[in-house]
């Protein structure tokens, strides 16, 4: 019992000391809402970045996983919270650019109704297929799909996911909405069925598929970025492979409620920038296959422009996609 009391006294003293030294923003821990389950790609990027940002800010950034409805539940909670700078969120392409067209009753407006902080990292998207699909390259694949869209099965990780969003965009560009969409709970199980040949193709982030492509258990037709990826140098870009219209990248970025104090925004932008310049953090992000954002994309305005650009690109295909 004595030990217990001593321990508590020490704990209390520590806590009081912590509270006394703080001046200006931030004076208490900041909550970063990750709108997906712990362990997923967005969660990992959030934890890596938040770890370093906490050091710069002098206050812990607490990750809170609020999953649901393709990540829109958590983002809605974050951007409708009190704009005091103590609630922010790590969202992605789906929650910020695709959500308005995906979810008709969306409770937030990513373009006008939130304060962007900056992009944290991008991941290239690949078109991958089961290894015994006849088409040898993207051109043949596109031709085959266009000829018999009804014969193909496409796997995705649920409505609103990156794989669903990017593949719906692909189907929109090809004009083949009739391809059968097979929904999985997460890209892991979807990839499993692609490896075993139960489904024909899918679009997904390089992080998830790179190992399987290298192991030749699936084949990659193209990467939907401007440049080839150093992680998979043999995979041509969509431009090289003959489908230049299909350009999309999945990214993660931080935003908060509209009306945050300028001091909070500035400090968060600064902390994010420092985190992305930190060698250790950079290496951990690059190891994941992430592409670091440009100087422009790290600013609130640049990130907002990116959200807008991708929203414009995705909206036509997503709005036309069957949802009900």
């Amino acid at each position: 019992m004595k030990k217990l009391v001593l321990g508590l006294a020490a704990a209390a003293a520590l806590a009081v000391a912590g509270a006394a030294q703080a001046q200006g923003y931030p004076t208490k821990p900041i909550t970063m809402i990750v709108p997906f389950a712990a362990g997923g790609p967005t969660d990992i990027i959030a934890r890596i970045v938040a770890d370093n940002m906490s050091k710069t800010l002098g206050q812990q950034i607490v990750i809170e996983n609020v999953a649901g409805a393709g990540g829109t539940t958590g983002i809605a909670r974050a951007v409708t919270a009190a704009p005091d700078g103590y609630t922010i969120a790590m969202g992605h392409l789906g929650t910020f650019s695709a959500a308005p067209a995906t979810y008709p009753g969306l409770k937030y407006d990513p373009i006008n109704g939130m304060q962007t902080i900056g992009m944290a990292g991008g991941t290239p998207i690949l078109i991958v297929a089961r290894k015994n699909l006849e088409a040898p390259d993207l051109k043949a694949f596109v031709a085959a799909v266009k000829a018999n869209p009804d014969k193909f099965n496409e796997a995705h990780a649920g409505l609103g996911s990156v794989s669903w969003t990017t593949c719906t965009l692909l189907k929109g560009i090809l004009g083949t909405p009739k391809i059968n969409a097979v929904a999985y709970r997460g890209t892991g199980p979807a990839l499993n069925d692609l490896v075993s040949g139960q489904v024909d193709f899918m679009c997904d982030q390089i992080v998830s598929v790179a190992e399987q492509v290298r192991a030749n258990t699936i084949k990659a037709y193209a990467i939907a970025s401007a440049q080839r990826s150093p992680a998979l140098p043999d995979v041509p870009t969509t431009k090289e492979a003959g489908l230049p219209e299909y350009q999309i990248e999945a990214w993660n970025g931080i935003a908060g409620p509209k009306g945050m104090p300028k001091e909070a925004v500035d400090k968060l932008v600064d902390a994010l920038g420092k985190a992305l310049n930190d060698e250790g953090t950079k290496k951990r992000l690059l190891d994941l296959g992430t592409v670091l954002p440009t100087a422009e994309e790290r600013t609130p305005a640049g990130f907002a422009a990116l959200i807008k650009r991708d929203a414009d690109k995705l909206t036509p295909a997503l709005s036309a996609a069957p949802k009900q």
Partner: peptide, 12 residues
């Protein structure tokens, strides 16, 4: 999640 945080992508 733990493996990925440590830079190992689980796979074959």
């Amino acid at each position: 999640g733990a493996m990925t945080i440590h830079g190992i992508i689980p796979g074959p």
